[in-house]
Amino acid sequence: MTLFKKNSFYDFAYKRFKKNKLAVIGAAVTLLFVVMAIFAPLIAPYEPSEFFFVEGQNVYNKYAPPSDGHLLGTDSLGRDVFSRLIYGARVTMMVALLAVSISTVIGTFIGLITGYFGKLVDAIFMRIVDIVISFPVLFLLISISTIMKPSIWIVIFAIGFVSWTSTARLVRGEVLRVKQLDYIVAANACGSSSLKIILKHILPNILAPIMVQITIGTAQAILMEASLSFLGVGVQQPTPSWGNMLMDAQKLLVLRDMPWIWIPPGIVNLLLVLAIYFVGDGLRDAFDPKQ
């Protein structure tokens, strides 16, 4: 990246992003899901944990196929699948965004100090990164979730704590690159304080790749949450999550005969993650003048 004037750099990026059809579609779809999550109570026909009964009987209306009353039918406990799907967007997005905030803060902080100070600090933290990435993400998540009583906050903390390493590595690399730039060398030579150089000169220069990383990280966090919830160590019933809505599909009966229970949450999950990836790819191409 050459040294653009800041504004013109983002203007150019915005122009390039707008030209990328897939990225724009991705942004629109993501926005749609955000709206859905925010206004869930207005859109969903029922409460997510409301139980329905077979008409005139004192029996739960379980596994009901789609009908006018229940657009996507009901699940194993007689709850409206469509309403759970919409409230699930809330849970999914909240978990993903908070988890990414945690991992971005930790990752950026560690990346900045290791990249900037180098030497011993760098050696120590990079070994810590090596240790953490040696554990498959899901293993660490499962360990954390099993040690503590599962709750939505534990899921957020666990994902955030596990996924900071890629941000740290990225930021470290960017800092090493930016540090070579003339004006930062000059600022250093002029005796500006480290904190000032990091905050005023380095951070603004590496914002673009961090933004890309946040986008991709959000998509990955959504997938992690869904996997954890699917395995039963993530978001717990009765709170709806797109992951735990698919748990029932491990039963052969549900998988074979009741696709309305598991296909819709799977599809929306795929759609949202795909949309966010499109945005991420679009941002990367927009920020990278080489392309």
Partner: peptide
């Protein structure tokens, strides 16, 4: 490739079994 990265593996697994 993007779909491959974006699809939750358990969902893909269930689809494949189905």
């Amino acid at each position: 490739s993007l779909v491959g990265v974006a699809i939750p593996s358990f969902f893909f697994g269930l689809l494949v079994i189905y």
